[in-house]
Design a protein around this nucleic acid. Structure first.
Length: 897
RNA sequence: GUGGGUGUAGCUCAGCUGGUUAGAGUACCUGCUUGACAUGCAGGGGGUCGAUGGUUCAAGUCCAUUCAUCCACACCA
């Protein structure tokens, strides 16, 4: 098979695109279902079709790809199922914005026209993020790509809605919801973000009808006062005991409203008096229910004060008996009608002041709920919406995590999860949007009948008339919650579903646990009867180099595509995986990518070196029959790194695993083995051939170890060196092999390394340039070991020759001491007897310190008695080595005097 | 208010269930154009592991207290 040549310069742009295309064309990403294999499945957290690849996607998908590639190479039948999310609210907002620029509104073009535009938009931009994911190297099975609004997913949504409704777990009713006046839709509790804002406490005075006194109370939202239907005090409050059963006259409206006693009024806060606006405050709503207070709405759904028109519409409902439970009345706000809530606030405060009802204004900062999409302040509103009853669904979902059937990595995130699930409130799932799954509920305008059905055009079961479908759509997360099984074919019983479900690992950021993870868990358990995944691997955020969140408003976002363009996808991926720990945030730094690129370059050049010295006889990676000490040292080291890497990947310690590979490649393989192999390669013959075989064998292993992290460069090199598989993607991932365990040779070679380092030390200290060679005399009882390493000294520390003896006596030489040898470096005029002695004394001192520390430990009876044998034995071995060294130091000193 | 994270070399961060004299990258200093690589090689300086106390033969690692910083959830009339 003709091998590829490697360019002199590592230039990822030359091959990353080509390699990806080839992988995809060959179908390597698509698993062949095999009952004899174990499946390993990841479903992608579907990116929004509105999205562009950002660093958050880059980490998320890099981590998934590492896991998938590793498992695929291990022989699992792996499926990484990709897809995108329709992102109802975000997409609709973008399209509305684009239309606004053309001067068109939703109402102008109607529902069908709007949806047509939306699908066009999806067609145009929906594929963008997919292309970008490919640049990253994501080995997704694109033949199974899904979309949350495609036919299959829609079928799943329809099925789930019907089942829950039939079970009584979905209901419709007037409830307090979070209303976004900008998006003009309700949103769920999870979608509210709290931000700190400057505001005021307006201290108002309400006159008491019975006593004529003024009751002081404070509010942050004076414009809601028109909707007040009571004032609450605490029953225990002595200040107001005389007011039980009394009334206040609501200023401006001159309306009599009761004073009620309720636990919500906190005696310790402010004056202990609270105004109650059931239609526009969640707490007040509860108070209202407890005391059966009227609910009076004063805001329109687009952020204005209500007027005669709105009032008439509401009155009509009551008049025709169509008002549901808790249907709010509507106030005609008169002179305030039509104002925005902010305008009304100003006008109302002015009028209150004029009437003597305003006592004071106290500035304060407080947390205000905002919409997580558009950051508009949320207006709590009583509104008729669809809800999922959560308590019953949450219970098994809590159990699954508590019992360990599903686990969070790191484990601490389960606490967030429990907290959320245990305090969960019903989920508001209807959205006043058009882009999304339309709610399969139908109403009969004639007889007020409601039907939830799988049919598209039902007729009223009561009067046989055609029905009107609910205009609302479902929360985006409703379909995301079904993602792990809707994408595999559910509700149909498909082979994929049977084989790949439950999925193995979910990889996602901690910011999305409540939105998505928790909902997938209860959904999987409820509809599939099986958990959606076993492991939840949580990662942190990528921040900028100063530790700030990357955001559009700050303009500090780093575009992953630009990074890929400059340094290559491998460098970006490695940077994102290396030096991170699960669940923790990380900082992006250009220097980090550069370091990763340099590492790729190192590997590139090591491969070029091997190729330059490769004979045609070597057809595939295979060890020679005869191994030398240094070969065994390398293989033994390699074998242990294989084990650590696998262990760390198993534990989701991807950062540590990548570091393991990095260290081995750079330090062990390149800096030591390749250097020492040069002598043999130059010598030619059998020994050179054997060295080549070891180089190729270990290189082949290294590439496979690194492939999950750096898929492109490893494939490019794989195609250039002798290999045993048409693609590295499908080659076997290295596994620990007892036969490669050479502890003895590892220790032997370590002695030589120590000696070489000692020589290098002396030479640097004396500023001897490499061009000035010196003979190295080694006094050691490990003669055999050192004789095998003679050539290494010449290559690695500028030795002109090496003499190995049991005893050496050289005048005028620098002396270095290791555990196993004394090294003499006769450097003629550079040697100053006094300085040499001083250096030896310094070594003696530090060696003595070691001995003292260890002796103290071993002299401690408790230590010897209580510490594990292994630890004690280790200390003893250390002591004996230090003592050997000390003896050699003392001998050397004596010899000099 | 409740829960959680982080605090280790100038900077960015590793350090798993406690067990060598605490590591890496980067920055810094010194010296190297020996044909894989200057995106490199060799050598070096630099940390009382936020503070205090405790458990233990042994603490960066476990416990308590405390300081700093960040986050989540809740509340704020």
């Amino acid at each position: 098979m003709p091998r590829k040549e490697l360019d002199k310069i590592y230039n990822p742009k030359d091959f990353e695109g080509r390699i990806y295309q080839n992988w995809e064309e060959k179908g390597y990403f698509t698993p062949q279902i095999d009952e004899n294999k174990t499946p390993y499945t990841i479903v992608i957290p579907p990116p929004n079709i509105t999205g562009q690849l950002h660093m958050g996607h880059a980490v998320d998908n890099t981590l998934q790809d590492i896991l998938i590639r590793w498992r695929r190479m291990q022989g699992y039948c792996t499926l990484w199922l990709p897809g995108t999310d329709h992102a109802s609210i975000a997409t609709e907002a973008k399209i509305v914005e684009a239309m606004r620029k053309e001067g068109v509104t939703k109402e102008d073009i109607g529902r069908d026209g709007f949806l047509e535009r939306a699908w066009d938009w999806k067609k145009q931009y929906g594929g963008r993020i997919v292309t970008q994911l490919k640049k990253l190297g994501s080995s997704c099975d694109w033949t199974r790509e899904r979309f949350t609004l495609d036919e299959g997913c829609s079928k799943a949504v329809l099925e789930v809605f019907n089942r829950l409704y039939e079970k009584g777990l979905i209901y419709r009713g007037n409830r307090m919801v979070n209303w976004c006046p900008c998006c003009k839709t309700s949103i769920s509790d999870a979608e509210v973000e709290y931000t700190e804002q400057q505001g005021n406490f307006w201290h108002l005075l309400y006159p008491v009808k019975e006593t004529g006194e003024m009751l002081e109370l404070a509010t942050t939202r004076p414009e809601t006062m028109l909707g007040d239907t009571a004032v609450a005090i605490n029953a225990e409050d002595p200040r107001y005991a005389h007011l039980h059963g009394c009334h206040v006259i609501l200023p401006l409206l001159n309306k009599e409203i009761p004073i009620v006693c309720d636990e919500h009024a906190d005696m310790t806060k402010g004056t202990g008096v609270v105004k109650i606006t059931p239609a526009h405050d969640p707490n007040d709503y509860e108070v209202g229910l407890r005391h059966n207070l009227p609910i009076v709405r004063v805001f329109t759904y687009d952020g204005h004060m209500t007027g005669a028109e709105e009032k008439a519409a509401a009155d009509e409902l009551f008049a025709t008996g169509k008002a549901a439970a808790n249907e709010p009345e509507v106030l005609d706000c008169g002179k305030y009608a039509g104002m925005t809530t902010m305008e009304a606030r100003k006008a109302i405060v002015a009028d209150l002041e004029a009437g003597g009802f305003l006592k004071e204004i106290e500035p304060l900062t407080h947390e205000v709920g905002t919409c997580y999409r558009c950051h508009t302040t949320i207006e709590p509103m009583v509104s008729k919406q669809w809800f999922v009853s959560m308590k019953e669904l949450a219970q098994p979902a809590i159990e699954a995590v508590r019992g360990g059937d599903i686990r969070f990595i790191p484990e601490r995130f389960s606490k967030n999860y429990f907290h959320w699930m245990e305090n969960i409130r019903d989920w508001c799932i209807s959205r006043q949007l058009w882009w999304g799954h339309r709610i399969p509920a139908f109403y009969c305008d004639d007889c007020n009948e409601t039907v939830v059905t799988r049919e598209a055009n039902p007729v009223c079961p009561k009067c046989g008339k055609p029905m009107r479908q609910d205009p609302d759509t479902l929360d985006t997360w409703f379909s995301s919650a079904l993602w792990p099984f809707s994408t595999l074919g559910w509700p149909d019983e498909t082979k994929d579903l049977d084989y790949f479900y439950p999925t193995s690992t979910l990889v996602t950021g901690y910011d999305i646990i409540t939105f998505w993870v928790s909902r997938m868990i209860f959904s999987g358990l409820e509809y599939m009867g099986k958990k959606p995944f076993s492991d939840i691997f949580i990662h942190g955020l990528v921040r900028d180099s100063q530790g700030r969140k990357m955001s559009k408003s700050l303009g500090n976002g780093i575009d992953p595509l630009q990074v890929i363009d400059e340094y290559g996808a491998d460098a970006l991926r490695f940077m994102l995986a290396n030096g991170t720990s699960p669940g923790n945030d990380m900082r992006y730094g250009d220097d980090k990518v550069k370091a990763a690129r340099n590492f790729a370059n190192k590997l590139w050049n090591a491969s070029r070196f091997i190729l330059m010295n490769l004979s045609d006889e070597i057809e595939k990676p295979e060890l020679p029959d005869e191994l030398l000490m240094e070969d065994m040292w390398l293989l033994s080291k390699y074998n242990s790194v294989v084990k650590t890497v696998n262990d760390n990947l198993e534990n989701y310690e991807l950062g540590v695993a990548s570091q393991n590979v990095y260290d081995f490649i750079w330090d062990v393989f390149c800096d030591w083995y390749i250097e020492i192999s040069k002598a043999r390669l130059n010598a030619g013959g059998q020994t050179a051939l054997n060295a080549q075989k070891v180089l190729v064998y270990v290189m082949s292993g290294i590439l496979r170890l690194l492939h999950p992290f750096m898929p492109f460069i490893t494939e490019e090199i794989w195609q250039a060196i002798p290999n045993d598989c048409e693609t590295i993607m499908l080659a076997s991932f290295p596994a620990y092999d007892e036969k490669l365990n050479f502890a003895g040779e590892e220790a032997e070679f370590q002695r030589i390394m120590d000696a070489i380092k000692a020589v290098r030390n002396i030479r640097t200290e004396k500023n001897v340039p490499p061009s000035r060679k010196a003979h190295v005399y080694i006094e050691t009882s490990y003669g055999e070991t050192f004789k095998k390493g003679v050539a290494f000294f010449e290559r690695l520390c500028s030795a002109s020759g090496v003499t190995v003896e049991e005893t050496v006596s050289i005048e005028n030489a620098a002396v270095g001491v290791t555990d196993s040898a004394k090294i003499f470096l006769p450097l003629g005029e550079l040697i100053d007897r006094e300085k040499e002695l001083a250096r030896l004394h310094k070594e003696q001192e530090s060696c003595q310190k070691d001995i003292d520390i260890i002796s103290r430990k071993l002299g401690n009876a408790d230590f010897v008695a209580k510490a594990p044998e292994k630890v004690v034995a280790n200390e003893k071995a250390k002591l004996s080595r230090a003592q050997d060294r000390m003896q050699k130091i003392l001998e050397s000193i004596a010899a000099m005097q």
